[in-house]
Each structure stands twice: as C-alpha cells, then as structure tokens.
Simulated assay, not measured.
Amino acid sequence: MSHRAANLPRLLSEARRWFEDALFAGVTRQTAHQAVHGLIGMGLLEQTPDPASARRRLIRLTAEGQRVHERAQATIEVIETLLVDRIGPSLVRALRDALTADWGVPPLVTAP
C-alpha cells in the first residue's frame, strides 16, 4: 500500500485495493460474467427466474456455494489477523471504529 496518498478517499481506496488484491488475486470485471457461469457449472451458484421480471434471472448460492462462502469468510479473518500482526490491534480497532462510525449524509460541497 502506497503512502503517497494524502487525502482520506485515496487512502481508503488503497486500503480496499489491498484487501481485494489479497482476496481476488487480480480477478477483473471483464471475467465476472464468465466466472458466474463457471460457478454455476461447478454447482456453487444457480440461476432462478426473477418473479418480478420475466426477462431477468436471479443468481443464488447453492448449499455447496454457501460452504465455500463460509470458507472465504474464514480466509478474510486470517487476512485481518495478519493485518493486526502488521499494524497492531489498536490501529485495526481504530480503523474499524472509524469505518463503522455514522458519517451522516454526504455533504453537498461547492469548490471555492
């Protein structure tokens, strides 16, 4: 993660990217459609008709997909533990507190 960023939005974006890199190892949006159909083929997802629209289909987890999801959640816990090891529990706690605080409605700001 770069420390060149000076503003919070960029820092938050870089932090998110750090987690995404660890979780997705470079999966791009262009492959998302193929990935969904691959996951359907593997039995992790299923397509069902959308009751609200005859033209749309819903994508849902299968029982096996739920098991894999739980394993992914466990992986996230490991990554978070590694972050605690790297920057310390008080900084991770402060980060979590800051990100879960009620920031209110985004302000409407005009440039000076």
Rank of each mutant, 00 (worst) to 15 (best):
G88T: 10
A74W: 08
R96V: 09
S2L: 04
A94Q: 14
V27T: 04
T62V: 02
S13I: 01
Q47F: 01
T81W: 11
L91E: 15
V78F: 07
R71F: 07
R17A: 04
H3G: 11
T48G: 03
L61H: 15
P49L: 04
A72Q: 06
E80K: 11
R4N: 09
L11Y: 07
L44W: 15
T48V: 12
P107S: 12
P9S: 06
I76R: 06
V84E: 14
L45Q: 12
A5N: 05
L91S: 12
D85K: 05
Q30W: 07
P49S: 10
R86N: 13
F24Q: 03
W103H: 14
R86D: 15
G38M: 03
I40Y: 02
R71Y: 11
V109F: 13
A94T: 12
R86H: 13
L8K: 01
D97E: 14
F24S: 06
R29P: 01
F19Y: 09
T110W: 07
A63S: 10
T100Y: 07
E80Q: 09
A52F: 13
R60Y: 04
Q73W: 09
G88D: 10
R55A: 10
V36E: 00
R10Y: 04
T110N: 15
D50K: 02
T62L: 00
R4P: 05
P9C: 02
V78S: 09
V36T: 06
D21S: 04
H3M: 09
A63N: 10
L23P: 02
W103Q: 11
D85W: 03
G38E: 07
L95K: 02
R60I: 00
V27C: 03
E20P: 00
Q47A: 10
V36R: 04
L95R: 05
G43I: 00
V92E: 09
D102R: 12
L58E: 14
E64F: 15
T28L: 02
L99G: 11
G43E: 04
R4S: 11
D97C: 04
F19N: 01
G104V: 10
A6S: 12
G41N: 14
G38Q: 05
A72W: 05
M1C: 07
G26Q: 05
T31Q: 13
R93H: 13
G43A: 00
A98E: 11
P51I: 00
T75Y: 10
D97T: 08
F24M: 05
S2E: 06
L23G: 00
R67A: 06
S90L: 14
A35K: 10
V92F: 10
V109T: 14
L58P: 03
I59C: 11
A32K: 00
S90P: 02
S13Y: 08
